[in-house]
Design a protein around this nucleic acid. Structure first.
Lengths: 343, 343
DNA sequence: TCCTTAAATTTACGCGCGTAAAGTTTTTGA
DNA sequence: TCAAAAACTTTACGCGCGTAAATTTAAGGA
């Protein structure tokens, strides 16, 4: 490798023996130049390791190669995982991912969109906060930048939505619980952060009634994104008050369930399916930590590999066609029962 | 707000009645212009909501306002939390954070640095993978870009290191455990991901010997960053083989401890300090999930608020002075005992 | 071989802003 | 009140690259 530094594309073009416009064409799409030309450029690239100035590129191109990824709460490993999958796809498609977390705060969410706007991204993959989101502001953003929503749906906002089939999944696990023991009580936050929680509750109510069981919903207090803590306190209270009409609990999500199990353990209540167990507890999402609770949590998984893939592919399609979606498509993926020892 | 769009600084300057160079000066530092001028610009800003083109700015400025944040594994809530703290400081200081995770992969770590290089950041805050890091490549990067390391030290690399005092913390918890029961066995990965693990083991050995106790280290197999899984399997094996010479275990970190507790629960072993408990287990780090294990995990915290603050401040100091550090400073923060019910 | 077509070159302009230099106006302080 | 200092305006250039138009060169087929 020659140590003489290349300052710009002009210099690089001259050392590679190719004109600058052609070199520029090469960097925009290596396939767009003749094979022999490509070979000469790549030979020079080996020797001088030049890279085009990203700011100069983005100043002149209509659209950048940036893709925003916005998640509501990165400290939740579930979102960290899905962000990682999305990121991998974004890089694979030749884009540059810009990962932003809203940290559970609607103001930060809008701030993230603002800061993305300044980067003029080719598109954005966004998991909104949900209920708390400033709908009008998000909507305005989506009209400027092609945006695909995932995880949490804001009806009518963005080009498409890709998520989890909360109804199918909830029905699935409720039926499982009914089949193998007493029907479940539904354990949820009174003011849930996103619309998935409502879908889950409604699906629970429907399937319980359809099977002739009396539903019971326990809605606990607490706001914010510290679900484990909220679940812990809620469970302490509810257990002390003996609010549960059956010995089975379906938590609205795994993080609440993690808190629930912790509280149950502290009060000496044995959770699980074996002999000597007083109660069954199930969750929803197959959170990365659900495998390590005590007992290990029976839950229903989100297919977040498929969700991430579909969301990314949908966005890339929009970007390539340089068009807005004809109609807003909604894609839901099925959950799978994950049987462990808690229920 | 006027809906007529402002295309560039030229246009904005004319509608605000100020010359473009002065407007430019304003955006670089609002304090650098006369108060009356500032008022006029800000009035125009309210009316037209113009924002300078970030790419044009960065093309011409020597240094950008970007600050890279590189963490080894974002799906670990511990790093997600510390990244959040760092990010807040970066934004507060008027910089733009670029958050990148290496996903436990040295190749990705170097890739992250490469992609940062292209952004010509003013500085970088980096938590290296540790042992697995490509030291030479990281070192080369640090010579190009002012970089402050945190969490995991690569001796001699970067302008400074800010981290956790593993020795103080380990001594602290070992002494606590000895004081309140049988001395601990040390439970760790055979090939730990980062140098902190080695410091903890060595500190354990030293303090045990200093107090006349026979140390025992159990080093379990497993590579990668799925520490809970590794801890789970390792604990299963070690418990089945009755390898523990005392009834107390100190895990090298909380994530291993989480796996340990899960395994212990499955084998019916009761962990904790109360009557009827067969074993005590402690961790290290005060991981966000340590509060919700069964039983709740006694551990020693990392002061990651201080670590994040100090690392960020150190970097900002370097950036402002536009100089490299005279000498490489190392700052360590003390851990605090977090007493819960597991030990 | 020649002709058609595809590809590369030459030339030139523009993107939006930083910034320097020289001249002008306003502010500051005694 | 007046001169010095500070702030602003005008003018002008450059950053590194995208891209269009006209021209030249190379590739491929009968």
């Amino acid at each position: 490798m020659d140590d003489s530094k290349i300052r710009n594309m002009e210099e690089f073009a001259s050392v590679s023996g190719i004109s600058r416009p052609t070199v520029s064409k090469y960097f925009n799409d290596p396939e767009s130049v003749r094979k022999s030309t490509r070979a000469r450029i790549e030979a020079a690239l080996e020797q001088y390791d030049y890279r085009p100035n990203i700011y100069a590129i983005n100043q002149n191109r209509r659209s950048t190669k940036n893709v925003g990824i916005v998640v509501p709460y990165l400290a939740d490993p579930f979102f960290a995982e899905i962000a990682r999958h999305v990121e991998t796809h974004v890089i694979g498609a030749g884009f540059r991912p810009i990962l932003l977390s809203s940290h559970g705060d609607p103001g930060q969410e809008i701030g993230n969109l603002d800061s993305l706007r300044a980067l003029r991204p080719a598109g954005v993959l966004m998991a909104p906060l949900g209920r708390a989101s400033d709908r009008a502001m998000v909507e305005a953003f989506c009209e400027e930048v092609p945006t695909v929503l995932f995880d949490s749906n804001l009806e009518g906002v963005g080009e498409a939505f890709v998520g989890h089939d909360n109804r199918q999944a909830t029905e699935n696990i409720v039926k499982y619980l009914c089949r193998t023991g007493e029907p479940p009580v539904f354990f949820e936050m009174k003011t849930p952060a996103n619309p998935n929680a409502n879908r889950r509750r409604n699906a629970y109510l429907d399937v319980m009634r359809a099977h002739g069981h009396e539903p019971q919903v326990i809605s606990i207090d607490g706001v914010g994104w510290e679900f484990e803590e909220i679940g812990f306190r809620g469970a302490q209270k509810a257990l002390a008050a003996r609010e549960f009409s059956t010995n089975t609990v379906l938590c609205s999500n795994d993080r609440l369930a993690i808190g629930f199990l912790s509280a149950a353990y502290e009060t000496g209540l044995r959770i699980g399916v074996g002999a000597g167990c007083a109660m069954r507890v199930a969750g929803h999402d197959d959170h990365p930590f659900a495998r390590f609770t005590c007992p290990r949590l029976t839950t229903i998984s989100q297919d977040y590999t498929s969700i991430a893939t579909k969301a990314a592919e949908t966005l890339f399609g929009l970007i390539e066609s340089d068009a807005r979606a004809a109609s807003r498509e909604t894609t839901l993926f099925d959950g799978k029962l994950i049987l462990r020892s808690s229920a």
